[in-house]
Amino acid sequence: MTLKLLSKAAVLAAFAGLLSFGGAVMAATTEAEAPKTQFSFEGPFGKFDQAQLQRGYKVYREVCSACHSMSLVAFRNLGDKGGPFYDPKYPNSNDNPVVKAIAADYMVDDIDTETGDPSKRPAVTADYLVAPFKNEYAARASNGGALPPDMSVLAKARERGPDYIRAIVNGYKAAPAGLTVAPGKYYNPYFPGDMSSSWKGDPNDVPEGGVIGMPPPLRDGSVTFDDGTKSTLDQQATDVAAFLMWAAEPKLNERHQLGAAVLIYLLLLSTLLWFSYKTVWKHESH
């Protein structure tokens, strides 16, 4: 009996192990591990913190959006349930005055139906956030050849995305002596890369991290938060990381809530089926 149990446990363990390998990151990473941040949206009951999203949006709008597009997010999304400017008075985010005002600040491309010429008009809530550059080439040309990635799903496109984003923005350091960093590039211990070729020191002690094309984007006081939160570099980095997670996974609140209901239902169903099973098999040896 014990043996049987043991072998069953072994099967389960083997599969759990196999599963965990699948999700595991490949090794041979040379960058420093991003410190763990406790975000409000983590865990099974996690939710976005609206005040934090508003602060994060301000950082994105005033700093990041100068170079980074966010082409999958529409103005209306900012007022969606769970979003930075959600207001229960306006269940339809297209009616939300804050969202309308944000959209109206931007000009978007249009076509003059009279002449067929390209024209500009103020954005409406249905429009998508306006990209800072016309196309990839323009973006590269303005950024020393590097392409600032679109930020719509950035927080999901990196392992431990929000932690990684916070660490990058927060983690610039002076390049250690012996490391050649090309002009217009910056050393960041959290950025993946292999620097053995530009390292003059001990080949067994290559510094971790890589060189990134983005200059340190934030410093203490870069933005002024409307809610009076002290605008430290770390605060800005944490808030923008949370905002980018919202942009990448706007249905997270809904997902966590529905998940709880589904699990409660399944536990109940399993209990009922267990008793049903026990009743049916009561008099049968097996």
Binding site: Y265, T279, H283
Partner: peptide, 23 residues
């Protein structure tokens, strides 16, 4: 088996089937 109460026995099956159907 005299010890079984048929109504209670049926109830658990009906409840399980109803829960599954509702889901």
């Amino acid at each position: 088996h005299a010890s079984d109460d048929p109504s209670r026995r049926d109830f658990i099956h009906i409840a399980a089937i109803a829960a599954a159907a509702g889901g």
